[in-house]
């Protein structure tokens, strides 16, 4: 039953994987860049941004906010696009089964 729509299914699977892997990769990159800054170049984190406030503090808050926004991007895409594609495929499958 699935064979006929296999190409459609394959298409949305690869789309979903592309989004998931890209966002996960982005998150891992941002976090480990931060970790590498701590490990190798603390002087970057010591750059003063406002008054005596070093970059490290706003950057830390920034990473937390960024993480949350990234989950927001994913949920927006999944709710708007992905669920719709899944619903379409499912209804086609059901029609075929009847």
């Amino acid at each position: 039953m699935i064979n006929e729509y296999q190409s459609d299914v394959k298409k949305i699977i690869s789309k979903r994987n592309l989004i998931s892997y890209t966002l996960a990769g982005l998150m891992i990159m941002v976090y480990f860049t931060f970790i590498m800054l701590i490990a190798y170049s603390k002087q970057v984190l010591a750059i003063r941004v406002v008054g005596n406030l070093p970059l490290g503090i706003p950057l830390g808050v920034g990473i937390i906010v960024f993480s949350w926004l990234l989950t927001g991007v994913y949920i927006w895409w999944a709710n708007q696009k992905y669920d719709k594609m899944v619903r379409e495929i499912k209804s086609q499958l059901e029609k075929n089964n009847q």
């Binding site: 989004i19 996960a24 998150m27 976090y31 931060f34 830390g60 937390i64 990234l70 949920i75």
Partner: peptide, 14 residues
């Protein structure tokens, strides 16, 4: 504080 949060997006995506 930061490390304890960054796993959550991975839970979401993967």
């Amino acid at each position: 504080s930061i490390g304890f949060l960054v796993g959550w997006p991975l839970i979401m995506f993967l």
